[in-house]
Design a protein around this nucleic acid. Structure first.
Lengths: 234, 234
DNA sequence: TAAAATCTGTCGGATACCCGACAGGTCGAC
DNA sequence: GTCGACCTGTCGGGTATCCGACAGATTTTA
């Protein structure tokens, strides 16, 4: 088992957080992990459930969010390779704060809670390394809350595309081709699918992005950045 | 100096996070801290600045948020006694993610960065304790993002009042009398002051809250909770 | 105690966004 | 290759919320 897991090491090291860890910690995580596959639509965990450890996305993608009473969805992020999830419950031992669901067939690395406990009991200095993950997520979360209340719709969309493309500030790999349906994007920026579509088509007509089914490609980062600041003809 | 600081110990211990810390850590924090007073409107720190340590609010209140280009404000929270702030930069060493400004004359406990470094270098197990603070804030932040995108305006207001009254899930003391202007409340739920006012008056007419200038008192928690879920005649 | 500053309350017109509906495209499954 | 599932694109009416404006109340400052 171990040998097969080490195949993923270099892939994992594309993510800033993981790359920054001490070697022995990286070794430990990989050698105590196992693989796990989710089919499209299957959930990794749901809000309120107990925690069973830490996960890294190796292939496919996870949608992190919550569904309201009426079925409406609040999407925080769609995380692809090689993002890590599940660290909050590691610290406070409380139930998971949101849902994680596979948007397509997804391959995961699973580090069981017990292995983490053992490690942290014997080397508590590693708490800090895992906390860095939370710090990053908190910064993203603040940035998002800010964008949500300060920016009008069009700028929110542009801003979000940049955020996704950047890998949410280092949480996962950066990418210029964004594999997300307009529907999902809409519930990330809390707009309706229809207006999101309008705003995207607007960006497309200016050759800032190009649209395919289930995919948005950024053509011009600079002008997208300008659009997110509002310095652009609507 | 030390003797005067110990007067605040029992006050600090009203906050769940601080109360949960090991005794020696509480001792260390208090004995390495100093007092600091901010006048109304003065800022403790601004987004982008370097970190100089950790703070606890002992009196008055801090507004945590950001101002947009146009002067519009995004308020994350107004924190009173005895909330702790400034922990994110402690972990990643990056600049502060938002502004902290005194809304009235405010008394603060300041634990300098150097003292924290010394402590954590010699006893890295404490990283975990500080990380708990981040975990709490992250949960609040998620809950908030969720409320923001899933709930209609009226429920957002009710939800937010409950959140503030609960001390943001344990971040600071709980209170039934909320000392916040309707204006501030408005920019926390991202509504205009006018509609926030309408919604509050609506709650007042049902005897769920009572309104004074700069103050909202919750009269009926159960019905406010119902209102935040939408089970209430509008 | 007077003056300044801040906060609350209320009105209507403007508008950004929602939402249902439906057609056409694209993709994966069998 | 064909079918069903999902996704994109577009229209128009309905409406929740914004925004300027202004008056009165309340708190703070001098």
């Amino acid at each position: 088992m171990e040998s097969s897991l080490h195949r993923y090491r270099s892939q994992l090291e594309t993510t800033p957080w993981f790359r920054g860890l001490p070697v022995e910690l990286r070794d430990y995580l990989i050698s105590h992990a196992s693989l796990l596959t989710l089919e499209k639509g299957q959930s990794l965990y749901r809000r309120g459930e107990q925690s069973y450890g830490l996960y890294a996305v190796l292939g496919g993608a996870l949608a992190i969010g919550t569904v309201g009473l009426d079925g409406k969805e609040a999407l925080l992020a769609v995380l692809g390779p090689t993002a890590w999830v599940g660290e909050i419950s590691m610290f406070d031992g409380l139930p998971r704060p949101n849902d994680a669901t596979a948007v397509s067939r997804t391959l995961l690395l699973h580090v069981p809670g017990a292995a983490l406990q053992d490690l942290l009991d014997s080397a508590p200095r590693y708490w800090r390394d895992f906390a860095l993950l939370m710090a990053q997520r908190l910064r993203v979360s603040f940035e998002n809350a800010e964008a949500m209340t300060l920016l009008p719709a069009a700028q929110r969309v542009a801003n979000r595309l940049l955020m996704i493309a950047s890998g949410y500030g280092g949480l996962n790999a950066s990418q210029r081709r964004i594999r997300v349906s307009q529907d999902s994007l809409a519930s990330m920026v809390s707009l309706s699918r229809q207006t999101t579509n309008q705003l995207l088509r607007n960006l497309e007509s200016q050759r800032i992005v190009s649209l395919k089914s289930g995919e948005i490609t950024i053509l011009d980062f600079d002008r997208l950045r300008a659009a997110s600041l509002g310095d652009l003809n609507p």
